[in-house]
Computed example of a mutant assay.
Amino acid sequence: MVFSIKRAATCALVLSLAVPAAAAAQDSASFFKVGTASVTYGPYVRFGLGAARTRPSDEHWLPPGYPSDPRIDFNLSNDTSGFGEIAFGYDWMNGFRGDVSFLTTGSAHTTGPHTTSGDHADITSASVSTTAVMGNLYYSPFEQMGVNSRLHPFVVAGLGYANNKVSDWTRTSTATTPVNRTFSGDTHGDVAYSLGFGLAYQLTPPGKHPAILEMSYRYYSFGTAKGGSTPLTGSSTPVDPLSFENDAHVLSINLRIPLQRL
């Protein structure tokens, strides 16, 4: 008898927690219920344009005299650059869709002072751009709940490979008279990943072939970017050239068009 009473009390507690949670989910779904969408399973193509704010981290080089000379660290900053993307994917219309995207960022000017104590040179001229291929998985929670709306929030995660291209780069010392030392550029490939979220809105009315507008924010980690080691103006070859982790914050607008007819 005691066991039955305890089990009944436990079930009542679970129900008391589950009912408000379900109600909250339904309220959230109702908030995003905007019109009725045209449902199209299958393949799609997606085009995107936006702006990328790249942010280097772990910026450094190992000078020709390393390890007798110390590693030199920098505090680099980048200009905002453009962003473009094309993707081909498949929508299962159950809350999940996936695509493979090909993307590129514009060339972002990269400069910054050294942060290592002592008399060292700053990075006064460089730029970085990236091309990448990414596999992306999207999840729309209210679509999975069966909400047929023209408006859907989503989250997205991606994994892929990036080529980071660094231009010729220049170090300038201003301790006495300015001295510029320039090295060649280079391209370095690395594993890339991304995380983000956004909103998708069907532009076309019900019954018409859908065209979906997406607005999204995504964080990308494009891996390591490296300059070249070849001196272009008189200087010794560094042990390790200018190197940094190349991350980007991207705001973009995308147009997604299902390829299967209604």
Rank of each mutant, 00 (worst) to 15 (best):
G84V: 15
G84Y: 15
G84H: 12
G84P: 11
E85D: 14
I86F: 06
I86N: 01
I86E: 02
I86P: 01
A87C: 04
A87Y: 00
A87G: 13
F88L: 15
F88A: 14
G89E: 01
Y90K: 10
Y90A: 08
Y90S: 07
D91V: 04
D91A: 11
D91W: 12
D91L: 04
W92N: 08
W92P: 02
W92Q: 10
W92R: 08
M93H: 12
M93L: 13
M93F: 07
M93G: 04
N94H: 05
N94L: 02
G95Y: 05
G95R: 02
G95E: 08
F96A: 01
F96T: 03
F96E: 03
R97A: 00
R97F: 01
R97G: 01
R97P: 00
R97S: 05
G98Y: 08
G98I: 03
D99F: 02
S101I: 07
F102R: 09
F102M: 12
F102H: 04
F102W: 13
F102S: 06
F102E: 00
F102T: 07
F102L: 15
L103C: 07
L103S: 15
T104V: 14
T104G: 15
T105A: 14
G106W: 11
G106Y: 04
G106C: 12
G106S: 14
S107L: 11
S107F: 12
S107I: 11
H109W: 13
T110F: 11
T110I: 10
T110C: 09
T110R: 11
T111V: 14
T111A: 12
T111C: 01
T111E: 15
G112C: 05
G112F: 05
G112M: 08
G112P: 06
G112R: 06
P113K: 11
H114N: 14
H114Q: 11
T115R: 09
T115C: 03
T115E: 03
T115L: 11
T116W: 03
T116A: 08
T116G: 10
T116K: 02
T116P: 07
T116L: 10
S117V: 14
S117P: 04
G118A: 11
G118M: 10
D119Y: 06
D119K: 08
D119V: 13
D119P: 01
D119I: 12
H120S: 05
H120C: 01
A121R: 03
A121N: 00
A121F: 04
A121V: 02
D122N: 14
D122E: 12
D122G: 07
I123M: 13
I123A: 13
I123V: 15
I123T: 12
T124H: 07
T124Q: 10
T124I: 02
T124R: 10
T124A: 11
T124Y: 10
A126K: 09
A126F: 00
A126I: 11
A126M: 08
A126G: 09
A126H: 06
S127H: 05
S127M: 12
S127W: 00
V128F: 04
V128W: 07
V128D: 06
S129N: 13
S129H: 12
S129M: 09
T130C: 08
T130D: 10
T130K: 04
T130N: 15
T130G: 07
T131W: 14
T131K: 12
T131D: 11
T131N: 13
A132V: 06
A132H: 03
V133C: 02
V133F: 08
M134F: 06
M134H: 05
M134T: 02
